[in-house]
Structure formats: C-alpha cells, structure tokens
Nucleic acid binder design. Structure first.
Length: 211
DNA sequence: CGGAGGATTCTCT
DNA sequence: GAGAATCCTCCGG
C-alpha cells in the first residue's frame, strides 16, 4: 500500500515525473538542526533496465545500487568520481527507475550553502554533485530512505511553475550507448542554476518562473 | 568564454 | 585494474 506521497512518484511515465519536479522545493535538515534548500531547476530521467545509461541497465543489480529497486519516493545516493549525487526513486520495486536532480536554486539558508561549497556564485548548486554538497550532505547515510520521513525532503504540494521547459540529451552519459542521446533531460529555461549554462542563456530577471 | 585534461574515490570484475 | 549519471583549473583566442 502506497502513501499519497509515494503515489506522486509512480503511475505515469518517468519523463513526466521528472518534469513535474521542476519548481518543487527540496529542504535538508542537518544533524545539528540547520536547514538548507532550494527549488529544483533541472532533472534527468533514467528508465531502468532498458536504458543503456541507467545503473540498472540489462537488469544489473548490485548491492551498491540496490536502492533503485526500492519504493517510489525513496532516496538513491551514489558516488561518481569522488562526488555524491542524488536520485529520487520512481515507479515500483520491479522497475528500477529514477530521476536525477541536477540543479537547485537556493531558497533556504543560502549563506550556509555558499559556505558548504566555498563559493557564492551560481556555481553553488548548478550541478548534481554541487547541489548535494551545498545542501550539506557528505555521505550515503540517507541512501534507501523514504523522502517522506527523512531529513531530506521534497515538498510536492507547493512550488513554482516553469514558464518554459527545455528538453535535451543527458549530460555525462556514454553517447555511444543505445540511449545516449535520448531527450531525457529537462530544465527551467533561463534559470542560472541549470548546469553548464552559457551566460547568454541565463534569464537574470525572473529566473524563468511563471507569474 | 569555452574546451581540454587531470584529480579523485569507490565499486565490481 | 578499469570505469563511472563529476568538478575544477588551466590555457588559448
């Protein structure tokens, strides 16, 4: 039996879930009670066993990526080249799919996030490993835990709406793979916290939100 | 400003 | 021992 919260992360295509997460707020409560957080501005969909870029491609299932086979709305934290990244697990336990969070517009305790990163430009959280570090996460402690009841949360009941969503191919995946160029990357057009954005592509007026 | 190359840490084969 | 859903610095123009 799934909670209402978990149902947000299943029952529709992962690409759709990835887009619906744009504008939702992440809040992390550190062990000392300090909060950090921001609005999701960039996501990528990973479609599991049939997706050549997925950690679960061809049914690959290891102890390390076991969390992908968990309940929708769970946390998957993995390390790549010495950096931690954060996925939301979607679909059900038989479908090891996930949404990678790649960009965050700081809204909660921005000073602390800049301190965590040792810088204060858009580089604070315009990348999957950067935003995890900015939030103050530096272990896999929360890997496999449900967002709904962990110190790392996503508020799915409020948030902002992107004026326009840009779709493109995923970053950092093997382009020679079968799905290397599939359009599974989504971001808020113009938002300066999107990874790898050219300066002329940034909208410094309203960051690309509706209203 | 943009591209290239090196640093870095862990896991599985 | 290779390879990975990355980041940063250092160059050249």
């Amino acid at each position: 039996m799934l909670t209402k919260y978990q149902q947000f992360f299943t029952g529709r295509p992962t690409e759709e879930i990835a887009q619906s997460l744009l504008g939702k707020q992440i809040v992390y409560t550190n062990s000392d009670g300090t909060k950090t957080g921001g609005l999701i501005v960039e996501t990528e969909a990973y479609l599991g066993e049939n997706d050549s870029a997925s950690h679960a491609f061809n049914g690959r299932r290891t102890n390390y990526s076991e969390s992908l086979y968990g309940n929708p709305g769970n946390i998957y934290i993995y390390q790549i080249r010495g950096h931690y990244c954060f996925d939301v697990v979607v679909q059900d336990a038989e479908e090891p799919q996930g949404v990678l969070i790649r960009g965050l517009e700081p809204t909660v305790n921005q000073e602390q996030m800049a301190t965590n990163r040792g810088m204060n430009s858009f580089n604070v959280s315009n990348g999957p490993a950067k935003l995890v570090q900015a939030l103050g996460i530096h272990s896999r402690e929360l890997d496999g835990k449900p967002l709904e009841t962990s110190p790392l949360t996503i508020d799915i009941t409020s948030g902002k709406k992107p004026r326009e969503i840009v779709t493109g191919s995923r970053i950092g995946v093997n382009l020679k793979g079968k799905d290397g160029r599939k359009p599974y990357r989504f971001y808020v057009k113009g938002n300066p916290y999107v990874s790898g954005l050219r300066k002329r592509e940034m909208n410094l007026e309203d960051y690309g939100w509706e209203g």
